[in-house]
Structures are given as structure tokens and as C-alpha cells.
Design a protein around this nucleic acid. Sequence first.
DNA 1: ACAATGCTTCGTTCTTGGCCGAAACATTGC
DNA 2: GCAATGTTTCGGCCAAGAACGAAGCATTGT
Lengths: 249, 249
Amino acid sequence: MKNGPNIASLASLLGDPARANILAALLGGKALTAGECAAEAGISAPAASGHLAKLLNAGLLVVLVQGRHRYYNLAGPDVAAALETLMGLAVRVGLRRTRPGPREAAMRKARFCYDHLAGEVATQVFAQLVTNGHLVASPQGYRLSPLGRARFHAEKIDIEALESKSRTLCRACLDWSERQPHLAGSLGAAIAQVAIERGWCRREAGSRAVHFSGGGERALLAMAGPEPVGAPETGGAASNSSTHDPRRA
Amino acid sequence: MKNGPNIASLASLLGDPARANILAALLGGKALTAGECAAEAGISAPAASGHLAKLLNAGLLVVLVQGRHRYYNLAGPDVAAALETLMGLAVRVGLRRTRPGPREAAMRKARFCYDHLAGEVATQVFAQLVTNGHLVASPQGYRLSPLGRARFHAEKIDIEALESKSRTLCRACLDWSERQPHLAGSLGAAIAQVAIERGWCRREAGSRAVHFSGGGERALLAMAGPEPVGAPETGGAASNSSTHDPRRA
DNA sequence: ACAATGCTTCGTTCTTGGCCGAAACATTGC
DNA sequence: GCAATGTTTCGGCCAAGAACGAAGCATTGT
């Protein structure tokens, strides 16, 4: 009688605290061994193995066997997106794992979401890309404009290589902390990779949090700006972040 | 040690088959009494009462007490969006409640998603709106262009009234069956309401499925088209009367 | 006021599913 | 080959929670 997707069996998989912790850890984008997953979830190795098998069997994870290690990772960006969406709803209804702490402030500022950046900085980047006409709406969602293509070309990002993959180039992902979109898709992943490679930010060990240097944040926002670096900043593009509160540890 | 949203307690709420069935039924957008929820989920009234209390306590539902009836409904569009996202992932990993059946074909064609339309027709409408420049990308997501504003004005849709509400006017929601965006937000809801009022489509009893007439589908797509069609108006109650609206603002 | 209806609370039973320890399996290093 | 490490399988224990029936409230209608 009932039809449609089986949401219950999927949600029950995510509903166990141990599995949810594993998935949340994997949202950082790095593959983890079974033992690391066990440590993340605070359970024994056998328990973690069982959970990982279930998630793997459900198609939410993929595994890479290397020697005696098994590296588990999320099966794809759609899994990450669904997890982020659930996080957004959890925030909205007031469910937190703990009280908002110092780590949470850093997470809101910038974090990894599977393989791209999320948080305040990432939503600002997205807004800049749209404002400057690099991203435009298309019937299938967002699309990279010729202007944006040239802009990223100037930044030595090989758009053609990204397009050759089956994965979507641009996709808007609703940020759970900012409730505004940030950029996902292969381009979002490439931008995150570039930000790390060029030292604009660094990942906090064992966390999804990302710490930007002052210059790094400016550099990233400048990459989303209208012109390649060196353009005079007349204040028009600087946007509103200057009005933020100084109460930040 | 852990921080961030508590995804596990939220997902465990959705992970029970009875609760998932209730929520899936409520995705149709109509408020249901406790007894109707019990029938939908195939459980006894006491069991349903307990589940509804949990969902209510978690902030996923709202209740409207009218006499001896209690009308339950989703707490808001974000809940519906999260459910749809989970459905999309469930489809992607191959979890279905049953084999794809005749009902499923109708659901893919058109269905209600809380208070707006989803499915093949809805994604086509969204594509048309973007193609014709009625919807454009903005830093905060999608925005109604002046052109689109005039277009809906010609269709007797009071955009200003929608904007006066706190709810977002336009929002792209990823369709789980089409994997392309459709229009959510208060404008999406208004369009769905208009489509019903003008007889372009009718809801299947006790289901989210929506059946379009041939002319109705053309009329809806024409509304998203570039120019007001010269067809005679359907006359009568053009202004949307908010007579009985079980949903809150 | 009485009966009927809709819903919730309570108490009980019972199944599902998670956890751990022990042991088996697989791989690497000496 | 043998020991050490990482991972999975097995078996048993245990607790969380889901279901139902009976009873209690609340509201409606006659």
C-alpha cells in the first residue's frame, strides 16, 4: 500500500548515536580506518565493525582496503548533503550534542563538508560568486558563466578537467549554520583544495573545523571577486562582514 | 567532546517505521487528526498518540486543537525539505518501501511536497521560470526578478502579500525523483494553490499524488512562460481567499 | 444528564538491536 | 615461520522502546 522511498530504514541507520558519530566524523572528508571510527564513536572495535558493515551494506559508505587497514569514507556527495540537511534541521529544532562551545564558533566560521568548504566564509564566497556573475542560475540549477570560467582560469583552476568527470560542477548546498547556500560540487571541492594547498587555511586536527588566516580569508574572497588580484578595493565588494561582533575568542 | 548538531536523536525519531509513515503522510501538506495518522501508519491509536507526542516534543510537528480533534501537521517547510532530502538519498541507495508500482509513476509525475508541487511537472516549471528570466540567482539563493514579478502579477498572484510574510519567497528544493530543483517557498506554495483552485490538477484522495489534466499542465507551464497567454481567464475567485488554512504562517 | 466519540496515559509484554569478550581471520614485520 | 597488529565473526547479555489492552479525560450531541 505504501509507496515511495523507504525513509525509515535509512533514518534508522542514521539514528544510532554510534553510527551518527562515525558519519559525522567522515563528514570531514578524510577516510578513516575501522579503528579510528571506533575511537570517534567511543565504542569497541567489534561494535564499530558491525556498524560499518551496516552502513556499507546500505550504500552510505565505501571502503578502500589497503593491507590490513580498511579505509572507510562516505559513498558520495549526496550522502554528505543529506547529513548536512539533517544537521540543519537539528539546529532548527534545537537539538545539539552539547552546549555551543568554543569549537562550535570555529565550526560556524569555516569547516569541511565532505570535500568542500562550509560555514560563514563559504557562504560569503558563494554570495560573491553570484554577485560578480561567475555563477548564474540555469534550469538545472547553478551554472558557471563564461565570466566565471575565465576567472577560475586565471586562478589556475582547470575547469575543463572538472567538467570531464561525471560529477556536477556546481551545486548549491544549504549551509546548516548560516542558512544560506554555499558551493558544493566538483568546483566547490577544487576551491577547498586550492585553499588548503595555498596555505589560506588549515584543518584542525581531528575535526571538521577549518582555521583561516586573515590574509587567507581575504585571498579566498578575492578569488570569488570580480577581478584577479591587485584590483583596488573601493569598498563596494567588501560586503558586510566588517560589522561583525568582536566577541570572538 | 563532540559538538555540532545532534543528528542521531533526530534521525532516530525518523527511523521508526510508524513515525516515518506519519511524516510521509503529512508531507502531503494536509493536517491529519491523530486517528488518521494511526490509520496511515497502520498502528493503534495509543501507539500513534505516543509517536505524535514525541514528534511534537521534538519540534517536528505542530498541533491545532479543534474540539475533540487534534490536527497534526509538519512544523514547517524545513521539516518537509529535510524529509524530501532523505527520500532522495533513499532512492539513490536503492531503498524503497515497495517495488515501483503504478502509484509511484503518478508520484514521479506530480505530487505535493508539504505545500508546493514536486515531480516532473514542477521541475519543468522551475526550469521555465529560470529560462525565461523570472527567477535569477542572487547571493542569498534564488530571487524573483522584476520580469517575474510582473509575470505573476499578470496571473493575479499577489507577490507583495507573500513578501510581507517572514517566509522565504523563493527557494530551490532538490526533487528526489527528478534530481533537479523545483520551486519551494511561499511562491511555490502560492503556485500550487493556484493550480488547484483553477482546476489544473486535482489531488488523489489519501495520497500526495497530483493528477494534471492535459490542459492544466499546459496552463501551468504557460504561467511560467515568457508572456501572459491570451486564453480566457478562468474567471471567478481570482484572489486567494485564506478561508481555511490548517497551516500556520 | 447521559451516551458516544476522539484522544491520551498507564501498565505490561515482548521484540529488536546494541554492546562486549573471546576467538577466528588477514596482513605485516622480524 | 612466528609474533604483532588490525579487523571481523560469534555468542550471550542487557536495555531501550514499540505494541497492545484497559482505563481515564475531554468534548460533542441528544
